[in-house]
């Protein structure tokens, strides 16, 4: 018999489920519901308390506890997961296309003999077959892939599914188990979690953000971006490459492994729209993108766009906004 279960491997930090977990639950439900399959949310943790009464959109919540599972540890996670997933024998395992999921995919794939599809933005069950859509090459390509009838592992791209639908109005049956395997003598040890430095502006709390991408060209041009942000009463944030150049501090980075922001206005300047950035800002109320490349993927996410040169636009825009505010 073909297995009829989808397992979502939950991600959590400091006692809270991460957004990607809820997004994966939405994805799992979308696949499982029409096929009459069953969704299990699997949470590995030291203390089950914060998680046992959550109204998750799963058919059951399975919490596995052990002290080394308190913080994410790839060695501990894979040891537990290999054991459990063999037992559960699902059809589909969902991981986040995140720093956590990516640590697990390889070991689970080889350990369970299952194919992995990464960067998934959409998963569909067609009859009993699964089909996956993934983003490749900085979002410039979409690949459709099919896998065989056995277990498949998918890495779900953050921001692809609505996280609101990952919670419902009832708490599913919750089962708490101790880890089925010993977690001693692990080759990886978690030492501590370091919270981001708070001296700088908290970009997650600013209602207007001006995002600078590679198209800004030089550190010098950031001045004009800052002027615009100031005129708008907002703050400057950036894509990873800009932060990697040390033009702005890490605390200003938006996207995967940076901040997830949902301001009222996100003005993307010279941002190409690579998925790792887009996942951190696509929830913004209004997105305006400026990029000379009309094919830049950012225009799929933006509500408004323009291909005029950003350096040319900046002074006009700043001036008009100042004039508008002065009125």
């Amino acid at each position: 018999m073909i297995p009829r279960e989808v397992v979502v491997v939950a991600e959590h930090v400091a006692g809270e489920l991460s957004d990607i977990t809820l997004e994966m639950l939405t994805c799992a439900r979308e696949v499982a519901f029409p096929l009459g399959w069953h969704v299990t949310c699997l949470i590995l943790v030291d203390d089950p308390k914060p998680f046992q009464a959550l109204p998750l959109a799963s058919d059951r919540t399975l919490i596995v506890t052990d002290a080394p599972l308190g913080s994410f540890n790839p060695a501990a996670y894979t040891r537990v997961l290999l054991h459990l997933l063999k037992d559960l024998s699902p059809r589909l395992v969902l991981l986040g296309n995140t720093s956590v999921g990516m640590d697990l995919a390889g070991t689970l794939s080889l350990g369970l003999g299952a194919p992995v599809v990464s960067g998934c933005t959409r998963i569909r069950g067609e009859g009993e077959r699964l089909s996956f859509t993934s983003k490749l090459c900085g979002g410039k390509l979409l690949a459709r892939t099919d896998v065989g009838d056995g277990l498949a592992i998918a890495l779900v791209m953050p921001g692809s599914y609505n996280r609101e639908l990952g919670m419902v109005d009832r708490v599913p049956p919750v089962e708490i188990r101790a880890s089925p395997v010993s977690l001693e003598a692990l080759p990886v040890r978690f030492l501590e979690l370091v919270e981001p430095k708070t001296e700088d502006v908290d970009i997650t709390k600013v209602p207007i953000l001006v995002g600078a991408g590679r198209g800004i060209q030089s550190r010098e041009n950031l001045k004009a971006v800052e002027d615009l942000a100031e005129a708008l009463g907002g703050a400057v944030c950036a894509t990873r490459p800009v932060v990697d150049q040390r033009w702005l501090p890490r605390t200003r980075q938006v996207g995967r492994s940076g901040m997830t922001v949902k301001p009222r206005l996100y003005l993307a300047l010279g941002v190409s729209g690579a998925p790792e950035h887009v996942e951190g800002m696509k929830g913004s109320d209004l997105i305006v993108a400026v990029n000379t490349d009309p094919d830049a993927p950012i225009f799929e996410t933006a509500h408004y766009g323009t291909t005029v040169d950003v350096l040319e636009l900046l002074p006009f825009l700043t001036e008009r906004i100042r004039a508008s505010r002065g009125r």
Partner: peptide, 15 residues
């Protein structure tokens, strides 16, 4: 140093 969402860093030791 491993990156987590929200600008958090996990400090880990690996053999």
């Amino acid at each position: 140093h491993k990156e987590f969402p929200g600008g958090r860093l996990g400090v880990m030791e690996v053999s």
